[in-house]
Every structure is written in C-alpha cells, then in structure tokens.
Design a protein around this nucleic acid. Structure first.
Lengths: 385, 385
DNA sequence: CCAACTTCCGCCGAAGATCGAACAAAGGCC
DNA sequence: GGCCTTTGTTCGATCTTCGGCGGAAGTTGG
C-alpha cells in the first residue's frame, strides 16, 4: 500500500520507463544495495522480461551493461474498433509495432461477428510477426461508446447495436483483455507517446462526433459510470435550432461535429456526408468548407474554454478525422479559448494537433494492454510464481 | 513505489481509516504474520501514535484489544481565511474539533497582519484545549484565491492584495504548513466527512463568487497551475450584457453569484449588498429574491450540466453562503442538470447540499494537515527515526 | 462451577531478505 | 604497463519476517 521501492516490479517499471538503463542507475534510483539490484535483475532476466545489450559508454571506469525490456517473447495487441473500421496493431513489450492492419468493418454487425474478425486478424498478424499465439499476453480494445472498464462491458452505447452489456473479455480465452472507450485509449496513447511528462491533458477527438479523453495526474479519468469526457452533448449558445440525435438541441456535436458540418455543406449545395468529405473539400480550397470548419473550431473552443477553467490542463491535443485540417480547426479553437479562459489557466496551456495520427486509438489500446501487463503488481506475481 | 503492504505507515493508515481496529484485523488485511503486526503496533504505540482501549466484543474467544489513534499528544489546525473573516479549528489527530473560533478579519490587511492574527488565535485555542504549542504538528490553511500548492504561495489572487507570491508556510516556524484554495479544502472536508467512499465528487461553493473543488479518484485535482475548479468565469448563454470583474462578460459569477443577485435585487428596489442579504430576503419570503435565486440555480445548473458530461461525478455538493437557501438553489440546479446532461451520467448522480456547513473550510483545512501528517511516508519517517 | 473450545497475543527459533565489504572485471588516463 | 574509476558478483553478517507454541482471556455447554 505504500511506496517501498524495491520489488522486482518496481525495477522493471524503471527500466520500462527508460528512467534506468543500468544496474547502477537502478541502485541509485531505488536506494537498494547493488547486490540486491543484481538479484532482482537476474530474476527478471530469468523470466524473460529483461535482456542485456551491448555495454554502454564508460564514464571513466568499467562500462555498464545496458538493460532493456526483452522484446522477443511477448506480444500485445491494440484494437481500434470504429463505427465502420477495424484497426489492429501487434506490438512488442516496449510498444514497437510489429505488424498492423486495417479493414472496413461495421460494428453494427454485432459482437460475435466483429470479435471473430478481430480474432482472425490477430492470428494473421501473429503469423506475420512470427510469434506464436501463446506469446500474446494482453489485448487492449477501444470501442466507440461508453464502457464499464472493470468488466469490459459496453454501457448503453448509442452506435453499437447488439453490444450493450456484452462481456467482451470473455470472448478471448487465455488472454487478458482490457476494453475502454476509443477516445480514452487515444488520450492514453497520445500522452504516453508525446506528452509523457505532462500531468493533466485533454485529448479532443473531432470526427463524426466529438469526444474527449481525460488524463488527470497521469492516469485516465473515466468517471463514475465510465462516461467522462462525453463533451459532444454539451450545449453551445446560439444554436437552439440544431437538434441532436441525443434528443436535446444545441449540442456541440450537432453544430460542430463532422456530420453536422457535412450536412450544412450539403445545404449549401456542396454534397458531403462524412467528416472525410469535409476534409476533402477543405483541402481542395473550398472557402465555404473552410469557413465552416473554422466556425466549428470556435464552437469547440467555446466549450473547451469552460473546461480549461474547470480542469486546468497543461495540454489540449486535437485529434480525429477533422484534425487533418487542423490548422483551420485549431485557429478557431485557440482564438476562443484564449479569449474566454482565465489567464492563469491559459498562460502555460498549449493546444496542439495529435502527433500519433490515424493510429492513435490502436496504439493507445496496445499501450493500455502493455501497461496492465507491466504493472508492478502483475510483474511481482509473475516473478514470484 | 509499489504496493507492498506492511510498513508502519500502512498499518496506521488502516487504523486511522477505521478499516482495522484490532491486531487480527490488521493481520487479515495486510497479509502479514500476527507477530509482525504486533511489532508494528508496538512501534506505533511507543511513538505515541496509537493507543489501546478497552477490549472489544468476544466472538467466542479471547476478546481483541481495540486500537485507535492516540489523540492526546498531537494537535492540528485548520484555518479558513475568507475575504472578511477568519475561522480557526483546532483538531486532534482523528479529526475531532478541540476548540474553534471565528472573527472578522480583512484579508486585504496583508499577510503579516493576518497571519499574526492567526498565530495569536492558535495560541489561544491551544491554551483552551490544554495542549502545548509543541503539540501542534501541522497547519492547513484555505485562502480565497489560487495557490501554488507545492510552495504555499498565492498565485495572482484577485481579492488578496499584498499576498501575491507570499510564502505563507515560512511565516510559521517548526510546523508544517499546507496552503490551498478555500474551495479545495471545502471539497476535501466534505468528501472525507460525508462521502468518503465516493470516488469523484464536485463541491460547488456559491457565495459572493462561485467556485468548485474537484475530488478525482479520491484526491484533490488542482490542475496544472492550481487554478482548476475556477468555474465562476465560465460563460453562460444569453447574458452578454453582464460584465464581470475579470474583464469578460456573461461569466457565471457575474449573473448567478451572490453579489450579482444582490445587485439585481437592489435594482428592483430591494437593497442588498452581499450573499447574506440575499439569504435574508429569501428567508423572509420575498418572492423576487426567491425567483432570482432559483434562476441563479438554473444558470449554475447549465454550467454543471456541461461539467457532469465532462467529468461524470457521483456526487455534486452545493455549499457556500447561498446554500443556506439551498432548497431553491438546488431546485434550479437539479432541473437544468437532469435536463441537459446525458442519462448515463445523471442516472446515479446525486446533487445535495453541504453537510459540513459553515465550518466546511476550516475542517477541510484541518483534514488536509492531518492527512499530510498521517501519510504513510511521513509516518514511516517518524517511526524509523 | 468447571472443562472444552475459541480467539488473541507475546515469545522465540528458523527461514529469508537485504546489506555492505571485499574482490573481480573492464575500461580510461598518463 | 600501472593506476584510477566504475561496474558487477560473491559471501558472510545483520536485520526482518514467519509461524508454531504456549499462555491469556473470554464463551459455551453440561
């Protein structure tokens, strides 16, 4: 229950985080005797979790033997299930992608069909990477709807017919499965990949709909029912006429989501259906589309301005399909946030486009799986077994 | 760094939280041998942190000796500094109030004068409780403005002239001092006092201004600059004409804060200046005042509806001066939140008035001090010294 | 009222974990 | 090549923890 540094799990955490690459580092960081560290490292090597690489640079004495995660024996999968697609990334224990794939897949087909597809893809990718199925330690899955994280069951998801309360982890046998909302895993992936030393971060996904993943104190904030971050249905002023699929009106998503922009473009005589169509129009230089995207940015910025006052994040990352035209979206967002939020909160705030891009969700889901496996508790269990 | 249950600090945490009251409980909860537990408990008793009380109920065998925090040798202070008042509560280590006092005090007098006043009050209360100054282990202070928690320095506080960047802890020698925003300590006090098993809670203070304390995963979320929870300057729709002291317009505080309501009542020919005046008018049955309070509730509810979608708390507690007429305020808040937030987030959400009342801040500040002192790390340091 | 049973708690030898000193290894520096 | 620095291992000493035993202090049942 208390920080008492020194278990094998802690040692591995330090190696995994890159905080320590040699036995001496570990001794210094943990305060343990060098002999004790050696013993811990030996145990980790014996379990195939750590390996020694070439000797490092000498600093005037014997050069230290470098340590790193042993990347051969284990595999992890990150699965990104969207409304109409499925991406799977196979990763090694240090987060490198070994193989990945993407196909069209309708989530509305229901859990059995979709998960069977995922399972088959997993086998395929494992074969491609030359690793046996038994190497697969954990799977992370991001789904487009709220999930009860502890059980991996979707919780009344609006766009996942047939999935309500379906126990996704039970479908896969012999592997640990973690299921979370897609925006949450994107936030996790972005945080670990690009902003690891940031404590409080918001990841805003602007696609067909609008959602937000929340990193608070370095961990995902999921809220009481796992529905935290559902900012798509926050009301924006001056759009009472815009009805939303949720039954209310003036929801952010109903005026600034990709679908909403597409609809308004269609009304202007520019046929568009999806966020991708909007992006295409903007990239073709259409000024109407550009104006609408920037206006959407302002509306999103209005909501984010409130959330900046409330949550006081260090970084806001903008991702999702529409972030492909992020310069215009960001212009609107920044303009509003910096005008409407308190100076203290905005002074050190940065608002940036996603760095992980299209694969954000799959990578984040994989990281969710890896971090679960590498958690000190789990490692101690493995080492002491 | 890892949960490795068993240090003296952990044992004390279990006793303090009431999770364990006997040595057997401790052995069961920690998984340590009974003999080891006895040794830990002995050390804690020797340091004057734990004491044995009467034997408990027998369950068929020898009755266990009950353990509890030793409340005699230590004292902690919680200080609530408002714009115009100062409350100090002296508490024992288990959070019971030994003595308290309240006086009018203008925070604008500046740190030296105000802190000298606090110091004198502390001596007075210690005398009243019959404890020497040396018994005072830690002081928690809540101030009406943003604070850099790590250093205890106010950060550009708007209503605390002369306090900017003043290192409050250094004023007190030989005692640990923790300084935080007043709303934060109120949230902490309310959480520990009434909603200890709640993970995510918002405490909304409606007084002259409007602020919010955030408990996320059982701990205070302070944000990157310690300005999290500053919801008073979130924009509400349809009140563009209402100018706010922050320079923007349509801020929640400028339309629904106690000062704003008082101003509007004055315009209606009902002279009022402060939140207390508003409360008095409502309690006297004035329908104009009642209408305005309810309307203020709706506006606050509009903002909270957004935050419920974003943060997904289990409980929202309403406190502050205006919560004395909470039935009317809450009616407006509930009405709007339940209409505008997503069903998943509101289904198990409860919105209730504060239970700790007028002393919320002083109690919360005291709890901040006590929890700091009782933190496993600190206790281990004390026991191993 | 007393014996049998249950639970609690301290004592103590055994087992295990950690430490630190000494030593070996491997490079840099002159 | 000799000396210095840093790294890593070996090994006995020390400290911690465990768990069995017995005494303490109750309840239960005849």
């Amino acid at each position: 229950m208390t920080p008492q540094p020194g278990s094998a799990g802690d040692v591995l955490t330090l190696i995994s985080a890159g905080s320590a690459t040699t036995r001496s580092d570990l001794a210094r960081l943990t305060g343990l005797a060098r002999s004790t560290i050696s013993q811990r490292v030996d145990a980790l090597i014996e379990r195939g979790l750590v390996e020694e690489t070439e000797s490092g640079e000498s600093t005037g004495g014997r050069p230290p033997r470098q340590l790193r995660l042993h990347t051969e024996d284990h595999a992890f999968a990150g699965v990104d299930l969207g409304a109409t697609h499925c991406r799977v990334a196979l990763m090694d224990i240090s987060g490198n992608v070994l193989a990945e794939c993407e196909d069209a897949l309708l989530i509305g087909e229901g859990p059995e069909k979709v998960l069977a597809h995922v399972d088959q893809r997993l086998d395929h990718l494992l074969g491609q990477a030359g690793r046996p199925r038994t190497a697969l330690r954990a799977i992370g899955i991001g789904v487009p709807g709220p999930v009860e994280f502890a059980t991996g069951r979707p919780n009344n998801p609006p766009i996942m017919p047939g999935w309500n309360d379906y126990p996704i982890p039970e479908y896969f046998e012999g592997v640990e499965v973690l299921v979370d909302n897609d925006v949450n895993v994107m936030a996790l992936g972005e945080h670990r990949g690009a902003f690891a030393d940031t404590k409080h971060l918001l990841f805003v996904k602007v696609g067909t709909g609008i959602g937000c993943g929340i990193m608070a104190a370095g961990t995902l904030h999921r809220g009481a029912q796992g529905s935290a971050g559902d900012i798509g249905h926050i009301r924006v002023s001056g759009h009472e006429d815009a009805g939303c699929r949720c039954g209310n009106s003036a929801c952010l998503e109903a005026v600034a989501g990709g679908a909403a922009i597409a609809r308004r473009l269609t009304e202007l005589g520019l046929p568009a259906e999806t966020g991708a169509d909007v992006v295409a129009l903007v990239q073709s230089g259409n000024t109407q589309a550009l104006r609408l995207v920037r206006e959407a940015g302002r509306l999103i910025g209005e909501v984010l301005a409130s959330l900046v006052n409330f949550f006081n994040p260090e970084v806001i990352v903008i991702g999702g399909a529409l972030s492909r035209v992020h310069e215009h979206l960001l212009a609107g967002i920044r303009e509003t946030v910096y005008r409407r939020s308190l100076p203290l909160a905005t002074h050190h705030l940065s608002i940036t486009p996603s760095r992980t891009g299209i694969n954000a969700a799959a990578l984040g889901a994989g990281i969710l799986a890896i971090e679960h496996y590498l958690s000190p508790d789990n490692i101690n269990r493995i080492v002491n077994a």
